[in-house]
Simulated scan of single mutants.
Amino acid sequence: MRDHGGLPDDVAESLIDNSSFGTSGARSLGARTPVEVASGIVSNVREHQREPVGARRADGGSQPVAVADGDDPAAVGASWSHLAREELSRGLRRLRTEARMTGTAAARATGMSQSKLSKIENGLLLPSVRDVEKLLAELSAARGTRVELLELARRLHDEAEERRVVLHRGAHRHEQTVARIEALATTGRFFRNAGVPALAHSEGYLRAVLGAASSAEQVAASRSRRAQLDDLGKRFVFLLTEGALRWRVGGAEVMCEQLAHLRDVARRPNVELGVIPWAADARFPAPHGFQVYDERVVVLSVLTGSATITDPRDVREYLGLFARLERLAVRGEAAEDLLEAISDDHRELG
């Protein structure tokens, strides 16, 4: 898995306290040059990227870094992006003005349309690093200005890349993508509110999910994924709602076989199984199933493939949701009793 380093959540304190970023600071930037503003933004990002996500306590634990009252760290990150983008566009516009070039002339000289340059200068379009390089060269920017504005552009693109959700289309590509991630991960957390995770499928349930038209290659790939459970160096945490286990992908025989298989899977030394009963008083939504690998990658299964999320802030959101869901689950004998009760209901339905 690719390691996507992100802007840490603990930027909040200095982003808010530093006059370069605060609301009042944003209104008074006119007295500062684009280079000074860009330098302030970049130096703050550099500083926080050198520090851990949480301050270390003497006992080796971590504690969150304080943020301003009511501020969501993810929102602060978005605020940083907005302000940094604003300063990049303002800096480029000021350079063009100081060079006494019209927008049309600057656009022609750098090989872009006038409308594109206008969008860049008004903060409506994030220019590529190459576009920034061409503009800075054409506008004869001083070396210090070039360094700071290019650095700002690169960091904005890094931020945009980190926040990207990648969709892998097609069932086969989905299997390949998830299999590669699972092979590298040592811990997998799986939440389902409809159906059973592929790693815990019984043979009959697997065939029911894939359908009669499934290819031998698809069946083999799914079986290969299930073999991951045999690796005792890996840890698997399955969290299923009662509704997911009552969702009938096959008849009573298929469902009862699946529930018996889940009981067997739960007895493995590297597996934890929790079931969230109907009666659990959640009081918060869990809109879809997901899986988290090694606290670094989230995978969402969608109808046409899978989506992967690697931004650390988003991954932490899913880990937090998973922890809340875990507190609703029953385990051990209580989970086995619930699985048996659900099996009885499937048998009655026939």
Rank of each mutant, 00 (worst) to 15 (best):
A66Q: 09
S215M: 03
R56D: 10
L300M: 03
L240F: 07
V53I: 13
R90N: 15
P197R: 01
I276D: 03
G123R: 02
L83P: 06
A221K: 07
S301K: 03
E175F: 15
R267D: 12
P52V: 05
L150Y: 08
A99S: 13
L232H: 12
A227Y: 11
L15S: 08
R331W: 10
R96L: 07
V76E: 06
I276L: 06
G274W: 01
R225H: 00
G320Y: 13
S301V: 03
E257K: 06
I181A: 05
P197C: 02
L83H: 14
E272D: 10
A171C: 09
S39W: 11
I41C: 14
R2Q: 13
P285Q: 04
L262Q: 07
H346F: 01
P52D: 00
N122H: 12
L229P: 03
V37H: 11
R108M: 14
R192T: 09
P197T: 00
I120A: 04
G274Q: 02
A280K: 00
D69Q: 09
D3P: 10
V132Q: 05
S224P: 02
V297W: 10
E138I: 06
Q218H: 11
V297E: 12
E148D: 14
E133S: 12
V65Q: 08
I16W: 14
S28G: 04
S128D: 04
E257P: 07
R189M: 13
G103D: 01
T304A: 10
A179I: 00
R296E: 15
T310A: 15
L184Q: 15
A252G: 03
F236I: 02
Y205S: 08
K116T: 03
A341R: 11
R192N: 08
Q291D: 10
S89I: 01
S28A: 13
V271L: 06
I276V: 14
